[in-house]
C-alpha cells in the first residue's frame, strides 16, 4: 500500500528540470507559460526545480549543440531514478532547421531514451502540459517496474 502511495505521489508531484541545449528560446518561453495563471501546470503538481537532483522530469529543448552536449549528459547523469525525459519541440528529436549543422550533435535519442516527445515549433502550452502529464504517468510505471524488479530480486 505504501508502495502504491509512493507511486501515486510520483505521478502527482513531478518536478521539472529544464535543460536548454541551444534552443531558440521559443520552447523555453512556452514552458514558462505553462506555469502562468492561464495554464497553471501547478494544478498537477508540476514545479520547476533548481537542481537536477530534485528533478523527476527532465525537459530538454534545443538541438543539442556540441557546446551543450557534454553538459547535457553530465546533468542527465545526476538525476536520481526514476525519471523521465521529455523532448520539447522539434529540435531535440531531429535538430529541426539546425540539423546538419557542424555544431549540432543531436538527436537526443542518441544519448538517452526519450520518454515523451512533444512536437511543435514551438508546442502550445496545452500540448506541453499534455506531454508532461503523460510523462508523469510513465514515471509511475517506471516506479512500479523498479518495485517489481526488487521483488523479483529478493
Amino acid at each position: 500500500m505504501f508502495n502504491k502511495l509512493i507511486a501515486d505521489s510520483l505521478s502527482r508531484s513531478p518536478w521539472l528540470y529544464h535543460i536548454n541545449t541551444g534552443s531558440c528560446n521559443g520552447c523555453d518561453i512556452e514552458l514558462v507559460a505553462c506555469l502562468t495563471p492561464r495554464y497553471d501546470a501547478e494544478r498537477f503538481g508540476f514545479k520547476l526545480a533548481g537542481s537536477p537532483r530534485h528533478a523527476d522530469i527532465v525537459v530538454v529543448s534545443g538541438p543539442i549543440t556540441s557546446q551543450s552536449k557534454d553538459r547535457l549528459i553530465r546533468t542527465l547523469e545526476q538525476v536520481p531514478r526514476p525519471f523521465c525525459v521529455v523532448s520539447l519541440g522539434s529540435c531535440p528529436r531531429s535538430g529541426n532547421v539546425f540539423k546538419g549543422s557542424y555544431s549540432v550533435e543531436g538527436p537526443l535519442e542518441k544519448y538517452i531514451h526519450v520518454d515523451v516527445s512533444v512536437a511543435g515549433c514551438t508546442p502550445k502550452p496545452e500540448a506541453i502540459i499534455e506531454g508532461l502529464y503523460q510523462a508523469a504517468r510513465i514515471l509511475k510505471e517506471k516506479r512500479l517496474a523498479i518495485q517489481q524488479e526488487r521483488k523479483e530480486a529478493d
Binding site: 505504501f2 508502495n3 535543460i19 537542481s51 537532483r53 547535457l72 553530465r74 547523469e77 545526476q78 531514478r81
Partner: peptide, 24 residues
C-alpha cells in the same frame, strides 16, 4: 525495500553521477 536506494560515490571521484552539480 520501498525507498530508493541510498547511493554513494563508491570511491569514484570522477563519476559524473556523483559529481557536484555545476549547471552541467
Amino acid at each position: 525495500k520501498t525507498r530508493g536506494a541510498v547511493l554513494d560515490d563508491g570511491g569514484q571521484e570522477d563519476d559524473g553521477r556523483y559529481a557536484t552539480f555545476f549547471g552541467g
